[in-house]
Amino acid sequence: MRKPENTIGTSVPEMRSALRTHRFGWFEIVMLVVFVAVYYLLPGYLPLATQVAIMIIFAISLDLALGYGGIETLGHAVFYGIGGYAAGLYALHVWQEPISGLLVAAIAAGIFGIVSGVVVLRAKGLTLVMLTLACATMVHEFANSMRAVTGGDDGLSGYRIDPVFGLFRFDLFGRTAYIYSVCILVVVFLIARVVANSNFGLTARGIRSNAQRMQLLGVPVLNRLVLLYAISGALAGIAGALSAQVTKLVGLNTLAFTLSGNVLIVLILGGIGRLYGAVIGSIVFVVLSDRAAAIDPFNWLFILGGLIVLTVWLAPDGIAGRFSALTQQLRGRERKS
């Protein structure tokens, strides 16, 4: 029941932004500097920073599906969980090498994206939301009942992960885990950028704005959406796999509704449809929930809940949206003067 946002199709600023995003901006540089600085300045917070990196990957994957393709999902955790379990089982039974583990997870989650996408993405609006939710809950219950394979409630654990490239052992302080995660994050970010700015990505945006019109223009809408969903799923699978490799544990919570909700919150905090919104949102979300939980483990949901309500209310485009509105204002002012 989504109304076409704009009858002409893509608006001029949107086109301009689509062209501009091909270039690397200051944001990527600042991000890299921050990640390097964290390593040297806050060694005690590396595990937390690793969580941030993983959450960023997860949120980026959702942004591709939701922000670019307009696929409204309440069950994105399904890919995260499948990736996690795939990586865990792979390490437990096949090979402990981490990078091939990530690939296996990405393929598993990607295939699930194609299979579920073909059936789910025919629906729109509320039915789509409900189907994604039902799909995720189904897999969650399935993992719960396959106790022999997944460990059920206790989670999957007891596997080792080999050193990265056979050289860098995962240490107690999480240094390797951090660098490894950040490197994967950079790769994922680049992939997502390429996808988002490709013709394919622009088609996806077109579908989000007006699916019917794109269909009339001869775009195979369902195919495109399924492909986007699968790519998004594969990236989310990588996030889940990273978490599985770094923490050496995959729990049922990786498939849970709460995680699907949390990643949405991350994206709405940061801003949908602009990739770096996922970065800002993840940092704010993970750090805030960690701090709030440390200060008051029982009542931090107050902060989280209040934050969501206030964000949607006051800054529906997220922090990044506020920010770009601000810079656009400034630019406009410069032009006038």
Binding site: M1, R2, L66, E72, L74, G125, V129, G261, L264, I265, I268, I272, F298, N299, W300, L301, F302, L304, G305, G306, L307, I308, V309, V312, W313, P316
Partner: peptide, 28 residues
């Protein structure tokens, strides 16, 4: 009143946020 005014997905998120607030209140 605010929820009605936002877009479809904002509504989902806002009511989710409200649910968190309810959970926290009951917990307290």
């Amino acid at each position: 009143r605010v929820v009605y005014r936002t877009h479809e997905f904002g509504q989902i998120l806002m009511t989710l946020g409200l649910t968190y607030l309810m959970v926290a209140t009951i917990n307290l």
